Amino acid sequence: MKQKVVVFSQIDTEVLERLKQRYHVMVINPKEGDVNMQIREQVADADGMIGAGRVLNQNNLETAKQLKIISSVSVGYDNYDLSYLNQAKVWLSHTPHVLTNATADLAFTLLMSAARQVPYLDQWTKTGQWLRTVGQAQFGQEIFGQNLGIIGLGNIGAAIARRGFHGFNMNILYHGRHEKLELAQALNARFCGLDELLVQSDFVVVAVDLNAHTKHLIDAKAFEKMKPHAVFVNVSRGAVVDEQALIQALEQKQIFAAGLDVYDKEPLQDSGLFQLPNVVTLPHIGSATEVTRKKMAELAYQNLVKALDGDQPQYLVNPEFK
């Protein structure tokens, strides 16, 4: 008898077909009613789950009797109640590393777009406002040779730093839990406290995990410390930033601009951010290239298969359960 796998979000079609060949697959479909009710019903006899973007916790998983693994097609895992999964002895796997470059590319896209007012000037041009030579209101910020402050010099943060250092001759400042001496030496990067980074940086990029220590790490006091021409970029998690404080900082011109790919509530449907010309808002697309999403889906597939075959997957969040 085939093992049962619940697919709880859209995944790569090729991977889905391979799952169907190997397992009894049930796909959660929002068009068929309450998603949590569907999950509660389907996990009752499920052996594995695969997907991303859903909150999974005791509320929708307590019916599971034989669940072995949740294979997340993501790097971040703050959507999952890890303490409950540990209690229930369910493995949680994720897909690190394969999205590093795509996310770093997007971070720099946001940085450059916000610095040079690209979305605003695109609309300004298309609506017929280009009647004469541009004035100071259309000027952007210099990027080459400026100070780039990165909060969180992990894989993605380091990839962003490399783009700034090698591509734009930027001076790299970084803040995190630990110094990264070898990496810092290669990038001529300087480790510093958060306050110093905020004060000294022309560009501030956040690339940290969301946890109890980083929630609202960037708040009203943080924006007050930034330069008035600073550009702020967030490609980590929305809750790392106090969104209302950011809106206020942009409205009051405490900072020049912001580039965002993540938000407190997603999908973002209604927000004060939409009324501001000095913010670039993207729909959480850090890893959204065809190549990267296929790599993520493949890695999630391999994690799932290993667990259901009785082996330990390579990329476990909670490897203590065997």
Score class of each variant (00 low, 15 high):
310 G>D: 02
310 G>C: 10
233 V>M: 06
231 V>Q: 10
12 D>F: 00
228 P>G: 00
317 V>K: 00
126 K>D: 12
188 N>L: 01
157 G>E: 06
181 L>G: 10
112 M>D: 02
138 Q>W: 06
104 A>C: 07
174 Y>P: 00
32 E>R: 10
198 L>T: 00
47 D>C: 12
321 F>H: 14
257 A>Y: 07
301 Y>A: 01
81 D>S: 10
156 I>S: 04
126 K>L: 12
138 Q>Y: 12
268 L>W: 15
299 L>R: 12
105 D>P: 07
314 Q>W: 07
90 V>W: 05
283 P>G: 02
107 A>N: 06
189 A>T: 04
246 L>D: 01
285 I>E: 00
13 T>G: 08
279 V>P: 01
289 T>Q: 14
88 A>K: 14
319 P>I: 00
132 R>C: 04
185 Q>W: 07
40 R>K: 14
73 V>C: 11
46 A>T: 01
126 K>H: 15
322 K>W: 09
287 S>D: 07
94 H>C: 08
259 G>A: 02
48 G>Q: 03
87 Q>E: 09
4 K>Y: 00
118 V>E: 04
70 I>P: 13
41 E>I: 02
183 L>R: 11
26 M>D: 04
189 A>R: 14
32 E>M: 08
147 N>S: 09
207 A>M: 05
79 N>P: 13
19 L>F: 08
193 G>V: 02
6 V>P: 06
85 L>Y: 06
175 H>D: 02
73 V>E: 12
33 G>T: 10
3 Q>F: 04
176 G>C: 06
38 Q>I: 03
91 W>Y: 04
81 D>T: 06
271 S>D: 12
98 V>N: 11
108 F>R: 03
322 K>D: 05
146 Q>M: 11
191 F>H: 13
23 Y>F: 15
46 A>L: 03
257 A>S: 08
226 M>T: 01
183 L>W: 02
40 R>M: 11
163 R>Y: 11
200 Q>M: 11
65 K>C: 09
155 N>G: 14
58 Q>A: 13
196 E>D: 12
192 C>N: 07
147 N>M: 06
247 I>C: 13
173 L>V: 06
256 F>W: 15
10 Q>V: 10
226 M>F: 06
199 V>I: 12
291 V>S: 13
177 R>Q: 15
80 Y>C: 03
213 H>K: 13
215 K>W: 05
283 P>N: 07
59 N>K: 14
295 K>V: 02
303 N>L: 05
197 L>P: 11
56 L>Q: 07
93 S>V: 07
96 P>H: 08
218 I>P: 14
73 V>N: 14
312 Q>I: 10
25 V>E: 01
54 R>E: 04
91 W>Q: 02
62 E>F: 10
139 F>P: 01
136 Q>I: 14
146 Q>I: 05
319 P>K: 03
128 G>F: 15
78 D>A: 02
